[in-house]
Design a protein around this nucleic acid. Structure first.
Length: 788
RNA sequence: GCCGAGGUGGCGGAACUGGUAGACGCGCAGGUCUCAAAAACCUGUGGGCCCUAAAGCUCGUGAGGGUUCGAGUCCCUCCCUCGGCACCA
């Protein structure tokens, strides 16, 4: 009897959602054996909810988690929300709803969508960055970093986004554009808190060699850290005691240096040496340059401008007097902010020299210069980095308050640990202000003013909040510890104890598989590595890299463009899940192309996948299956297991699915009586990571013990995957002329003999001389004929 | 400009260390079923030539050259697309 009940995805999905939750299949014991921490990058809950691109990423990560679980691992796949931050806050402002209230709404929506897509999340250990139980530890980390000397307050030129009305870190303002809203950033001088990530430049760079990440992402980090080795060389000014230090990676070209150029910022220092007659012109140039934004300065790239400062310096190698210029093509924060101009070697210097008619001296680079300069004490080897310290202050509301107190008498002090968290006060007017005043200045005095922890006098809290990237720089450390007493109770004054249990930490971390997009290459991924290393150096952690293995998934685009609300091409998965079921949508997404490549979403092919889902269901739910052993079917089955397993190991989900399709096609044309129970068990198991609901339902129907997701992944028998026949392609002069089938172990001589006798081949060999016979076992025979 | 990744049918994409290019799916065409349609199922599907047909020949993986018995895969030159960095001294 054949059961042809249609597959009712709605009913089946809700059935298993409830049962999975109740039986805690996805909740590993914290002291489990064979642990596997499978983590997808922390999502920030966009107000529109989960879009199809998020679903793609989560599904791909989940397929890996489910596969690893079936391999026998205790898989921990936690989920939470990176809900603090400008993104959520801006949306709240737009909607006129308080961010706290809005976060409650988005949280519900997000979690219900994540449930619907069929992820094997451990719902008992979730976290949200805006939860005071979470951010007290964000603040604790800030304090620990401060105590270690890794946090300082600096007054410096910063990136100010006039649209977001806050300062931004360098990583968030690449090329002078706000990472969030794409507005041009302005330069402002502001007092802010900085993390000394530059102290870790070398460690972050060399650590890349120890981790298994996509080369693309490692490359982006290397480039961002921007190590360059060179020399700082001092040039003596003529008639003055002062010197100008330049940084160069090519000291071997110093004998071609015919001028010096100082950045406008730095040139102020030398203004006093500039002859009176020239001073006005120089000053004018400096002011004009400084009023340009970084962006404008970089845009005028090709055109070099500058002014002769009327000063001379001595080239220490040639002993010639050379002129000193100020020009804005030299940047103050690169190297020493001053360069030696070597027109014969550097294209930019050449342009500058031509324009202002400065001497151009041809020369050959001389490697001995390194030694020479060092020996004569003219300069020394120096390494510089492009990496800048991480600015973590934000003049915004929706973030973790920075746990610092300012006392007029005692200066800046950290909030005592036992007073954490410094809770974000509920205030009515939380909008950012154009003048850079923090919205928390609207907080009541009872919140703003506190007793100085040192002298007891009146002191004020820091009013800025910290960067969202600080929240997300350590969340992966939190998940396995959410059940611990320390986590719930918070830090105590005396112990200095962390939120985590080191035993738990060492058991679960580092993360076994981290899956996320490449867009965080120099943001989240760099910050997390830094914070982890810092905590490790403080003795809190025994590992240095949080993510030894990272898989970068591709992006789902729509009509050739990235999905975004402004383009109006955001695809919501809800309607598709409702119509086709989560399993079909999951498989459709995974079948689009290689997981690291992403793809263009069009629903054109989804109905094909629906057909496939139905076919699989029809096979699995046909109760009348024998225990007959059909050799040919067994061979195909074992080959399928082998191929699918290999593909899953390499995240080649698209080909894994196509292999399962071929298996299904084979079963469909097979005599129904030859389809035995085990061949269906295997089918259900192979498809389980992709279509978890249907697989579980089928598993029950097949009378197997709950749950399929904790069953043992099928193993292939090496004896069974061996073919007993081989198909040889027969070529003449490299061109395919026919093929023959022979027993797998047929000898070379016999294969060649048979090939020569094949009627399709004979005519090609008639009256020809065979010069060479190429034989590749199991594959090919090629007869090479002599030309004459 | 530099650094990545890539360019394969009408489309998404297969092809392990050089060994039968186009798996799998979509789309399309024809058919079965039906009063009809949908669904489902079956057959075909890179271009050209030849042909009643079976079969055969030939060209084909961005362009051109090379290595090799044999190249989508390796080497050289060039073009294009996407992503990253960019006056970094």
């Amino acid at each position: 009897m054949i059961n042809r009940d249609p597959y009712r995805h709605g009913l089946i999905e809700s059935k298993w959602q409830i049962k999975w939750k109740k039986s805690a299949v996805y909740t590993p014991k914290i002291n489990a054996k064979n642990k596997f921490y499978n983590l997808m990058m922390f999502p920030y809950p966009s107000a529109e909810g989960l879009h199809i691109g998020n679903m793609y990423a989560f599904t791909g990560a989940d397929v890996n988690g489910r596969y690893q679980r079936m391999l026998g691992h205790s898989v921990f796949e936690p989920i939470g929300l990176d809900g603090f931050g400008i993104h959520s806050e801006n949306y709240a402002i737009k909607k006129g709803i308080h961010p706290k209230k809005l976060s409650e709404i988005t949280e519900k929506r997000f979690y219900s969508q994540l449930t619907a897509i069929g992820g094997s999340f451990d719902w008992t250990r979730k976290l949200e960055t805006y939860d005071p139980d979470y951010y007290r530890w964000t603040q604790w980390i800030f304090i620990k970093m401060y105590e270690k000397g890794l946090v300082y307050r600096g007054e410096a030129m910063v990136n100010w986004c006039p649209s977001c009305k806050t300062v931004l870190a360098d990583e968030q303002a690449e090329s002078g554009i706000c990472e969030r809203c794409k507005t041009k950033v302005e330069r402002r001088i502001m007092a802010s808190w900085y993390f000394r990530i530059t102290d870790y430049a070398e460690k972050l760079l060399s650590g890349l060699e120890t981790i298994n990440w996509p080369e693309k992402i490692k490359h982006a980090q290397r480039q961002w850290i921007g190590k360059s080795q060179g020399m700082v060389i001092k040039f003596q000014l003529v008639d003055h005691k002062s010197q100008i230090a330049v940084f160069t990676t090519r000291p071997d070209t110093i004998h071609g240096a015919t001028f010096l150029v100082i950045s406008p910022e730095l040139s102020k220092k030398y203004l006093k040496f500039v002859p009176k007659g020239k001073r006005e012109k120089v000053l004018l140039y400096i002011n004009k340059s400084l009023s340009k934004t970084e962006q404008e300065r970089k845009l005028t790239e090709k055109k070099k401008t500058g002014v002769d400062m009327g000063l001379e310096a001595i080239n220490p190698i040639t002993n010639k007097k050379i002129s000193v210029w100020v020009a804005d093509y030299v940047l103050s924060d690169v190297g020493t902010g001053a360069i030696m101009g070597v027109p014969a070697h550097d294209e930019r210097d050449m342009k500058f020299a031509r324009k202002y008619k400065i001497d151009i001296v041809e020369m050959e680079p001389d490697e001995k210069m390194w030694e020479e300069i060092k020996k004569r004490g003219l300069g020394q080897k120096t390494t510089t980095y492009h990496l800048r310290d991480w600015l973590v202050s934000r003049q915004r509301y929706w973030g973790a308050p920075i746990p610092m107190i300012n006392c007029k008498k005692c200066g800046w002090l950290t909030v005592p640990e036992e007073d954490l968290p410094v809770e974000l006060p509920d205030i009515k007017d939380y909008k950012p202000k154009a003048d850079g005043t923090s919205p928390l200045s609207n907080a009541p005095d009872s919140w703003k003013f506190v007793e100085c922890p040192k002298c007891g006098g009146k002191a004020q809290r820091e009013l800025d909040v910290s960067d969202t990237f600080l929240d997300s720089s350590w969340y992966f450390l939190a998940y396995p510890n959410l059940d611990t007493r320390q986590w719930k109770e918070g830090p105590s004054a005396s112990s200095g104890q962390a939120f985590f249990d080191k035993k738990i930490m060492n058991a679960w971390l580092p993360v076994d598989a981290y899956i996320g997009g490449a867009e965080h290459a120099v943001l989240h991924l760099l910050y997390s590595r830094f914070v982890t290393r810092a905590l490790s150096d403080m003795g809190y952690l025994d590992f240095k890299e949080p993510f030894p293995f990272l898989y970068g998934h591709g992006l789902i685009i729509k009509d050739g463009a990235k999905m975004s609300k402004s383009r109006g091409n955001v695809v919501n998965p809800d309607e598709y899940i409702k119509k086709y079921g989560a399993d079909t949508v999951r498989m459709y997404l995974m079948f689009l192309g290689p997981f690291d490549q992403g793809g263009d979403f069009s629903d054109a092919g989804i109905e094909g996948m629906e057909r496939f889902t139905k076919r699989v269901w029809n096979l699995l739910s046909s109760a009348d299956h024998s225990s007959v052993v059909n050799h040919q079917l067994s061979v195909v089955m074992h080959q399928t297991i082998k191929k699918v397993t290999n593909d899953l190991e390499r995240f080649r989900y698209n080909t894994a699915i196509s292999t399962i399709m071929e298996y299904v096609n084979f079963l469909r044309i097979s005599d129904p009586l030859s389809i035995n129970h085990y061949s269906l068990i295997v089918l259900a198991q192979l498809i389980a990571p992709f279509a978890p609901y249907m697989a579980e339902e089928a598993w029950e129907l097949l009378g197997e013990k709950y749950s399929i997701h904790t069953s043992n992944w099928p193993k292939y028998d090496p004896e069974m995957v061996r073919e007993d026949k081989a198909v040889y392609a027969i070529q003449v002069n490299g061109k395919l002329r026919g093929e023959i089938t022979v027993p797998i172990d047929e000898s070379k001589e016999k294969v060649i003999k048979k090939a020569k006798e094949d009627e399709r081949i004979v005519k090609w060999l008639e009256e020809k001389v065979i010069e060479k016979e190429i034989f590749v076992k199991g594959k090919i025979v090629n007869f090479v004929l002599s030309v004459a």
